[in-house]
Amino acid sequence: MNIEEIHQRLVARFGDAIRELKTGVKDPWIEVAPESIALVGEFLRTEPELRFEALNDLTGSDWLETDPKKKTPCDPHVEVVYHLYSYSLKHWCKLKVKTARWKGGVVGELPEVPSVSQVWGIADWHEREAFDLVGIHFTNHPNLRRILCPEDWEGHPLRKDYEFPLEYHGVRGK
């Protein structure tokens, strides 16, 4: 099944929760409303004609232009990108979830996206990594702790406005 057909199936099932089909790019993607992503994931995995058994990659990225000379700065937001693959039907799908950089516009309050760790086992670790590095709070995650940085690390390094700490337990940073 190609991405247009998958998009049609999702729109028929979820309606407005499926926001956009982005084509004309190297890897076309489907944008999903953040609150529906766990249900969409469950549907994609279990539907007999879709059967996306594997989550190849889950990652977050922070969209904030830090270069003031840039002519067309991007709209500030945070997104989570899901790359799915079906071993039995040999087709793939890319999903995106876009949300505000901070919950309610309050700096320091992490944006919330439902966890898909109940759908794919690997999402547990990938979401922990996205939480750790990009700063996205995955709701309903069984164990949302830092995974790569130390437990007491401050900030989320892959945020574009992240500032490297000057000192960590007596080790000078700069």
Binding site: K26, D27, N56, V81, H83, K94
Partner: peptide, 16 residues
């Protein structure tokens, strides 16, 4: 933006 996986000795390494 692209995502590509290749077959490395230890598994599929993906670069996004």
């Amino acid at each position: 933006e692209v995502y590509l996986e290749t077959e490395c000795p230890k598994g599929s390494m993906g670069f996004y």
